[in-house]
Design a binder for these strands. Structure first.
Length: 272
DNA sequence: ATATGAGCCTGTATGC
DNA sequence: TGCATACAGGCTCATA
């Protein structure tokens, strides 16, 4: 399930192979993603050169040589891979882009929670992006910001940091991990956390993401002709999915609760 | 305005 | 062995 580190790793992994490449063929096999792939998508891409690949939150932003661009979201099960065009199609290979290098970029997404959409104008103005909070690894994600934003809010801090209007890219797994590192109980009301503890939280969120990106760089180094699935699950997690196991810090049993319909893991002793 | 819940979709894991 | 069911999850939208 691609969270921000996986999306960033994908971006870095794919970019060298698509940079300045011309799209000489494009096929949409399955337009029915979270939103329909635009009708004209394949046609409009023909002959275009890829000039940029950036990321905003968990969205990949493709820029073309004619000023057009499109968004791609990997949803929960999406992935991008470069293959030889003759390689057999896998089930759920929904979008194929053949490049003038002879390679083919394939968007694969079993659950189809992902999307591919035209960008009309600046990315920041797009309806899916214009309400988003700061990047967690950017300069504007600070303790002061978080503390101010949380003022008066009663939502559990975990839901709060998973709210894309507050800060983007903190998915369910990393939310639990970051709160564990910061020693903050996931159910604590967002508005009742001191500036000092928010400081720890900001540091923890950053650290968890940075480390995971670094790991992605080693486990996902090959985006070419990938046969197996990427090693997203090999990341070292401290609490996520570890209910009943001893806390790495104090030995207490890790607890599991549901918060906002999401599995949440924490150490009842270390996190207050 | 804030908070909560439904729904999109299918592979995998579980129980019978 | 097969079938049914639950669950996972990011994100938007609808409702309280």
């Amino acid at each position: 399930m691609p969270e921000l580190p996986e999306v960033e790793t994908t971006r870095r992994g794919v970019w060298p192979y698509i940079r300045d490449r011309k799209i000489i063929d494009c096929v949409v096999h399955q337009p029915s993603l979270r939103w329909p792939v635009p009708d004209n998508f394949a046609h409009e891409l023909l002959g275009r050169q890829v000039k940029g690949l950036t990321r905003r939150a968990k969205y990949l932003v493709f820029e073309l040589d004619n000023g057009l661009g499109f968004l791609m979201h990997l949803g929960m099960s999406g992935s991008l891979r470069l293959t030889e065009p003759i390689q057999a199609l896998r089930k759920h290979d929904h979008l194929l882009m053949t490049l003038d290098s002879g390679r083919q970029l394939r968007f694969h997404d079993p659950r189809r929670f992902g999307c591919v959409l035209w960008l009309d104008g600046l990315p920041a103005a797009h309806a899916l992006l214009n309400h988003l909070g700061p990047e967690p690894l950017g300069d504007s994600f600070t303790a002061a910001y978080l503390h101010g934003k949380a003022k008066g809010r009663k939502v559990p801090i975990k839901n709060f940091i998973m709210d894309a209007a507050v800060v983007v890219g903190v998915g369910n797994i990393y939310a639990s991990e970051a709160l564990y590192r910061a020693g903050i109980h996931p159910k604590r009301a967002a508005g009742r956390i001191s500036l000092t503890r928010m400081e720890r939280l900001v540091t923890a969120v950053r650290a968890v993401l940075v480390e995971s990106i670094a790991q992605g760089g080693t486990t996902l180094r090959d985006f070419l002709n990938e046969s197996g699935e990427p090693g997203y699950f090999k990341q070292s997690l401290s609490v996520y999915g570890k209910a009943g196991q001893p806390c790495l810090t104090c030995g207490s049993e890790i607890s599991a609760v549901r918060l906002g319909q999401r599995s949440t893991f924490f150490c009842p002793n270390c996190q207050r």
